[in-house]
């Protein structure tokens, strides 16, 4: 799954629906953030939740293309990146 531009609370519902749909269909999910400029806490929480669920269901979630800006934001949200 590849996302672009900003992922914030404004479009989080759409992103949430897309991720949940793909998550249910696949055992391995790659979320590509190479073209994502900015995220807010709503997206970081979603990644936390999907990671937790993946561990429970023994699925694999990979997040790639995380810029240094996003790394800081993920780290502040309690994600290990």
């Amino acid at each position: 799954m590849k996302f672009e531009k900003d992922i914030t609370v404004k479009n989080i519902k759409k992103i949430y629906d897309e991720i949940v749909k793909e998550f249910e269909k696949n055992d391995e999910l790659i979320i590509d953030l190479t073209d994502v400029k900015r995220i807010d806490l709503s997206f970081a929480q979603l990644i936390l939740a999907v990671g937790k669920k993946a561990r429970e269901l023994k699925k694999v979630i990979r997040v790639k293309g995380v810029s240094s800006e996003l790394k800081l934001l993920f780290r502040l949200s309690g994600l290990k990146v």
Binding site: S42, A49, G78
Partner: peptide, 30 residues
């Protein structure tokens, strides 16, 4: 806050984060 200096310890409590399928992505849980 991080621009003011260095965040030495950052404990994020995720215990209130609901299950992926139950969460409302518009809410703040952390």
């Amino acid at each position: 806050l991080s621009l003011l200096g260095e965040i030495e310890i950052n404990k994020v409590n995720k215990s209130s984060l609901p299950d992926l399928f139950d969460m409302d992505p518009h809410n703040c849980y952390l």
